[in-house]
């Protein structure tokens, strides 16, 4: 056991943690933006809207994140059509490839979470809104969505944690995230135990922050649904 080596390389881990946090936060935000229209399309009565959304969600939930990352990073790098296109500067960077893969992946899962929450909206809330004479659009904006978002919170906190941990695959395409830092330290000093335990502690600390954040959010927005004591 030699944790002194870890202390000397702590800077590498901090840099890695920064990369992980940036990558995960950005893909969560973009994924959420994508997920809402996807969820609405998925529920649409029009098959031209429903089927593309269904296929998208099926493909990205049906394949491992690692495979998606490999296809985007190594796969696209092999296609001349993409290498010649204006998109290449984007796909050239490992960072953007990872961001794209994570965003597309989390969008699929989040869309399903939102769809589930929308579909389980208590019928009474909708009836009350109709009784007030609200239009479809008004009901959707004022009742359905806010209510669904609140109830989606606990499930969404799981997705956030899953993506945080899933982001460990970024190290494979040369990014130095937390896991990437651990791999460098391990390969330099051949100390897998110390190197990866440290990475684990970083992930646990980040997970703790996520849990704490969602607890605050749930207290604020789900308070009214809790049993009164």
């Amino acid at each position: 056991m030699d944790f002194l080596l870890i202390f000397e390389n702590l800077d590498l881990y901090w840099q890695g943690a920064l990369t992980t946090v940036k990558l995960v936060t950005l893909s969560l935000l973009l994924g959420l933006l994508l997920a809402l229209p996807l969820a609405v399309m998925r529920r649409s009565g029009n098959p031209l809207l429903r089927l593309p959304a269904w296929s998208y969600i099926y493909v990205f939930r049906g394949t491992p994140l690692l495979i998606q990352l490999f296809v985007i990073y190594y796969g696209f790098g092999q296609l001349e059509a993409i290498k010649q296109s204006l998109l290449w500067p984007f796909f050239q960077e490992a960072y953007w490839c990872a961001l794209l893969a994570f965003t597309l992946n989390t969008a699929a899962y989040t869309a399903e979470i939102i769809r589930g929450a929308i579909e389980t909206t208590p019928e009474g809330e909708l009836e009350a809104a109709r009784a007030f004479g609200m239009s479809h659009g008004q009901i959707f904006r004022r009742i359905l969505l806010p209510s669904a978002f609140r109830r989606a919170l606990p499930a969404y906190s799981n997705e956030v944690i899953f993506l945080l941990h899933g982001s460990a695959v970024a190290g494979i395409i040369t990014l130095v995230d937390i896991t990437g830092a651990a791999r460098i330290v391990n390969s330099r000093f051949y100390n897998p135990f110390e190197a990866f335990i440290t990475a684990a502690l970083f992930y646990m600390a980040l997970t703790f922050v996520v849990i704490w954040l969602f607890k605050r959010l749930e207290n604020r927005w789900l308070g009214h649904l809790r049993a009164r004591s």
Partner: peptide
């Protein structure tokens, strides 16, 4: 310096221009 798990992956990225 970009570090790869396997030598072949480094060649792939040289070909891709990364």
């Amino acid at each position: 310096i970009k570090r790869y798990g396997a030598q072949d992956d480094a060649f792939l990225d040289l070909k891709a221009g990364r």
